[in-house]
Design a protein around this nucleic acid. Structure first.
Length: 414
RNA sequence: GUGGGUGUAGCUCAGCUGGAUAGAGCACUAGAUUGUGGAUCUAGUGGCCGCGGGUUCAAAUCCCGUCAUCCACCCCA
C-alpha cells in the first residue's frame, strides 16, 4: 500500500473547515491592515535560498529539498516564503505599484526535518511582508497585526517576545565580541555548543545545559547595539506601548535565518509542546539589495498553520462544523429514481444544496443518511403523492411533515 | 542527524511470563410488522497482529533487522 510520505499528511474534510476558518480570518485581518495576497511558485532556483537564508544555516545545508530538473536547473522546494516574495517584488517592480508592497501569503513550505508535534516536512505558513520602510511604526504595526490575528481567532495564552539584533555592523560586532569572550571556555562547553561557537554563537546563550549556563552567566553582555539601532528599537517599543500590545524583551530571540536585522520577534503559545513558537518574524533591511534590488528595508512574519490549528484545538474556541445540507431527496421505491434524479437536479440548479443516495434500500436507511448528513429537509417521493404532482417535505428539526406541490417546492424550501 | 516510546479492525485500545477459530468499545451495514431520522435492543461486515528474517513442535506474543509513527534533542513556523 502506498502511504503519504514521511512528514506529510492529508488534511481531511473534518479538519479542513478549521483551516478555512483560520485562512478566512487571516485574510480579513490582513486586508484591514492594508495587505494584499500574493501567490508565488513553490519551486524556485535553489540559489535564491542559499543567498537569502544563508548557505551555512541548517535550513539550507540539511533541510532543503533540492533537485535537478530535466533542463539541468538547480531547483529547490521553498523552505519559506520571504525570499520568494522579495524575488517577486524585485522582478515585478512592485515598488512602483500603487497598491504598495504590503503583501500576505498562505501556502505550503518544505523542510526535510524529523517530524514531531507541530513540525511537518510539508507544512503551511500564513504570513506577511511590508517592504519599503524602516519606520519603527511599521514594526509595531506588523507585530500588532499578528497579535490581532490571534485575538480574532480566539487563541489565548500567547506571548510576544521582542528583541533587536541591530544592523549588519552590529551583528558582526556582537558575534565577534561574544566569540572573544567565550573563547577561553570553549573546551568546557557542551558538544552542541562547541559546534555553535563557529556556526551560531548567539545560541550558546540559549543552551539548556547547566554547565553552559554557568559559563554564559560569567560572560559580560555589554551594550551591544549602535545608537541608531537602539533608538529604532526604543521607538518600536513605544509604538507597541501606545496601542496596548503586551510583550517582553528577550535577548535570546536570535532567529536562525541570516537575513534578519534590527527588530525580531516571536510569539509562543502554551498548548503547543516543545515547538511552541506559533509565529516568528522580523526585519530584513539588507535582503532586497542582496537579491539584486534597490536598497530597500522590509519586515515580515510567518505563522505556522499546523500550530495555529493545534492551538485552536487546544482552546475551547469555535470549532466550525461541516456545512449542513439543505435537502436530502428520498424515494419509496426503486422505480422513482428517475423522477428523483430530475428533481434533485432542479433543486441544485436553484442553488439548494441537495443530496440523494441512488443505492439506498429502505426509506428508513435514507432517513438515517439524511440525519447523518445534517439535512435540514427531506423531500420524500412517494408513488401516491407523485400521481397528484406532490411530494412530502419533512422538516428534520421540527419533526413536521407536509405535502407540497412539486411546482411550489423550490419556493417552499427557500 | 541523535535518543527514547509505540506499531493488533476505519478510530481508541485489550491480548504479549509463547499454546488451539485474535477480542472489546466506538464507527459502519441491516433488522425490531405495512412508506419515515436521532434513543434502545439484536445481528452482521470488517484483521498478511507494520514488513522481512530467526528461534521453536508451536510466534500477535521471544530475538534481530527494517519501515512507519509519536515525543524530545538539533534546528525551526
Amino acid at each position: 500500500m502506498i502511504k503519504a510520505l514521511r512528514g506529510t499528511k492529508d488534511i481531511l474534510p473534518d479538519e479542513i473547515r478549521l483551516w478555512q476558518h483560520i485562512e478566512s480570518i487571516g485574510r480579513d485581518i490582513f486586508y484591514i491592515y492594508g495587505y494584499n495576497e500574493i501567490k508565488t511558485p513553490i519551486i524556485e532556483e535553489a540559489s535564491l535560498f542559499t543567498r537569502s537564508i544563508g548557505d551555512a544555516t541548517d535550513i539550507v545545508q540539511k533541510e532543503m529539498y533540492v533537485f535537478c530538473d530535466r533542463g539541468g536547473r538547480n531547483i529547490a522546494l521553498r523552505p519559506e516564503a520571504t525570499a520568494s516574495i522579495v524575488r517577486s517584488y524585485i522582478e515585478n517592480s512592485l515598488a512602483q505599484s500603487s497598491r504598495g508592497a504590503k503583501l500576505f501569503y498562505i501556502g505550503p513550505m518544505f523542510r526535510a526535518e524529523r517530524p514531531q508535534q507541530g513540525r511537518q516536512r510539508q507544512f503551511y505558513q500564513i504570513g506577511l511582508e511590508a517592504i519599503g520602510s524602516d519606520n519603527p511604526f511599521i514594526d509595531a504595526e506588523v507585530i500588532a497585526v499578528s497579535v490581532r490575528f490571534l485575538e480574532r481567532l480566539g487563541i489565548e495564552k500567547f506571548h510576544v517576545k521582542l528583541n533587536s539584533l541591530g544592523c549588519q555592523k552590529d551583528k558582526i560586532r556582537v558575534i565577534e565580541k561574544h566569540k572573544e569572550s567565550l573563547r577561553p571556555y570553549v573546551e568546557k562547553l557542551c558538544e552542541t555548543c562547541k559546534a555553535r561557537f563557529d556556526k551560531n554563537v548567539l545560541r550558546i546563550f540559549d543552551c539548556k545545559e547547566v554547565s553552559c549556563r554557568g559559563i554564559v552567566e560569567n560572560v559580560s553582555v555589554e551594550k551591544t547595539l549602535c545608537d541608531e539601532c537602539t533608538s529604532h528599537f526604543e521607538k518600536v517599543k513605544a509604538g507597541l506601548d501606545a496601542i496596548g500590545i503586551q510583550y517582553t524583551i528577550d535577548r535570546k530571540i536570535v532567529r536562525g535565518l541570516d537575513y534578519y536585522t534590527r527588530t525580531v520577534f516571536e510569539i509562543t503559545q502554551e498548548s503547543l509542546g516543545a515547538k511552541d513558537a506559533i509565529c516568528a518574524g522580523g526585519r530584513y533591511n539588507n535582503l532586497v539589495k542582496e537579491l539584486g534590488g534597490k536598497d530597500t528595508p522590509a519586515i515580515g512574519f510567518a505563522f505556522g498553520m499546523e500550530r495555529l490549528v493545534l492551538a485552536l484545538q487546544g482552546t475551547s474556541g469555535i470549532r466550525p462544523q461541516l456545512s449542513g445540507l439543505d435537502v436530502f431527496v428520498a424515494v419509496t421505491g426503486e422505480q422513482l429514481y428517475g423522477e428523483a434524479f430530475k428533481l434533485t437536479e432542479s433543486l441544485r440548479k436553484a442553488g439548494i444544496a441537495s443530496e440523494i443516495d441512488y443505492d439506498a434500500k429502505s426509506l428508513k436507511a435514507q432517513m438515517r443518511k439524511a440525519e447523518k448528513l445534517g439535512a435540514k429537509f427531506v423531500v420524500i417521493l412517494g408513488e401516491e403523492e407523485l400521481k397528484q404532482g406532490k411530494v412530502a417535505v419533512k422538516d428534520m428539526a421540527k419533526h413536521e411533515q407536509k405535502e407540497v406541490e412539486i411546482t411550489d417546492l423550490i419556493a417552499e424550501l427557500r
